[in-house]
Amino acid sequence: MRTTLSYKRFPTPVRVIIRQSQENIIATAWDAVEFLRRWPGKRGLAYRRALQHCLDALDGISSPQKAWASFVSAMKEEGVLI
């Protein structure tokens, strides 16, 4: 069961494709945290920033827009953003 924290909606959903077959639609900060925790790629600065901003959005410390921007940046760095 999802908690109300999971409804920190992103301004627009993010489509991510891993290994040319697995498509993921990330629509909330909670979705992003779950996706990032399973992330098979490198966990560099952009990854760590995205994870922290998404966790901060869930805690109400920062906005879902900031989390979205960080997540998009991390996915662009990895070359998996559609």
Rank of each mutant, 00 (worst) to 15 (best):
Q22N: 11
E23F: 00
E23V: 00
E23C: 03
E23W: 00
E23P: 04
E23Q: 04
N24G: 00
N24R: 04
N24C: 01
I25R: 14
I25N: 13
I26L: 01
I26Y: 00
A27L: 03
T28D: 10
T28L: 10
A29I: 02
A29M: 09
A29C: 09
A29R: 08
W30T: 00
W30D: 05
W30P: 04
D31R: 03
D31T: 01
D31S: 02
A32D: 05
A32P: 08
A32K: 11
A32Y: 09
A32G: 14
V33H: 14
V33Y: 14
V33E: 10
V33A: 09
E34S: 06
F35E: 02
L36A: 11
L36P: 07
R37W: 06
R37T: 12
R37I: 03
R37E: 06
R37Q: 05
R38L: 03
R38I: 08
R38D: 06
W39S: 00
W39M: 01
W39P: 01
W39F: 15
W39V: 01
W39H: 12
W39Y: 13
P40R: 07
P40V: 07
P40G: 03
P40N: 11
G41L: 15
G41D: 10
G41N: 11
R43Q: 15
R43Y: 12
R43H: 06
G44W: 13
G44E: 07
G44D: 10
L45N: 02
L45I: 06
A46T: 13
A46S: 15
A46C: 07
A46H: 15
A46W: 14
Y47H: 04
Y47D: 03
R49N: 13
R49K: 10
R49C: 08
A50S: 12
L51I: 14
L51D: 04
L51N: 15
Q52C: 02
Q52N: 05
Q52A: 07
Q52M: 05
H53G: 03
H53E: 05
H53K: 13
C54I: 06
D56E: 06
D56Q: 11
A57C: 01
A57L: 00
A57I: 07
A57F: 11
L58C: 10
L58Y: 15
L58R: 14
D59C: 05
D59W: 11
D59K: 14
D59V: 05
D59A: 05
G60V: 03
G60D: 09
G60L: 11
I61H: 15
S62V: 01
S62C: 07
S63T: 15
S63M: 03
P64Y: 02
Q65P: 07
Q65K: 08
K66R: 09
K66H: 11
K66F: 00
